[in-house]
């Protein structure tokens, strides 16, 4: 009598506290490094992407910033670990922190300052040298200011950056953190290239538009997927 009562109680009790399904969520963790000259907007881009906040004030990055963002889709969690390296030359010795272990390296330049594009050569040489497996992505920032400049300058810079993209075999994206243009796309393209996923998002090739060119670049390298 007593015992059977106990059993029933125990049974109900157990049923209540049990999570009934033993379900495992897939987890994909991807590290992405952001490099480029000082004041091109690396930290802004990261903060915008992770926290959706844009701050006009400039804060110099000392060393390396690090933020994580989790994207949940159905049964999969994608976790972006974003490493943002200060652009000053003095932090170059910390480049390995941002570069090693990253599956994609985003090279940023300021569309309003052509010399920052020239610096990409050096950034690419150093960062890519440390981690040849990482997918490079070339990103021009401050598109919102760029569109107001002389159309001739716009054309020249666009062509130059496309040449850089070709040499680096890197997708090219123009973005504006302030106006939320193509910010999300950078990470989507990076992820698609890392895992060789098929992208169907339309490309933007017109000079003067926020360029988004990915299909021809970043496809042929041999690399270990980050899983």
């Amino acid at each position: 009598m007593d015992n059977s009562d106990q059993e029933v109680q125990g049974h109900q009790h157990q049923q209540q506290q049990q999570p009934t399904n033993v379900k495992v969520k897939n987890q994909v963790e991807v590290q992405i490094g952001l490099v480029g000259d000082a004041q091109v907007g690396k930290t802004s881009l990261m903060v915008k992407y992770v926290q959706n906040v844009f701050d006009e004030e400039y804060t110099q990055t000392l060393g390396v910033n690090f933020l994580k963002r989790k994207v949940s889709i159905r049964s999969t969690d994608i976790i972006f670990s974003i490493m943002d390296l200060g652009g000053q030359r003095e932090f170059i010795n910390m480049l390995p922190i941002a570069s090693l272990g990253s599956s994609a390296l985003v090279f940023l330049f300021d569309l309003t300052r052509p010399e920052t594009l020239t610096s990409i050569k050096e950034w690419y040489r150093q960062a890519h040298g440390l981690n040849e497996g990482a997918i490079p992505v070339l990103v021009g920032t401050k598109y919102d200011l760029f569109v107001d400049l002389d159309p001739v300058y716009q054309e020249q810079l666009s062509r130059a950056s496309m040449e850089y993209a070709q040499v680096m075999d890197a997708p090219l994206i123009f973005c504006s953190t302030a106006k939320s243009i193509n910010v999300q796309k950078i990470f989507k393209v990076a992820l698609a290239k890392i895992f060789s996923l098929t992208l169907t998002v339309p490309e933007i090739n017109e000079i003067g538009d926020p360029l988004l060119i990915y299909s021809a670049f970043g496809n042929k390298r041999s690399r270990g997927a980050a899983r």
Binding site: N26, T76, I78, L197
Partner: peptide
């Protein structure tokens, strides 16, 4: 099977049109 699922999910995500 989990990997396949993950690839499927990621493909869906990269192709969705949405800014943040």
């Amino acid at each position: 099977s989990h990997s396949l699922l993950a690839f499927e999910d990621m493909s869906t995500w990269v192709n969705t049109e949405s800014e943040l």
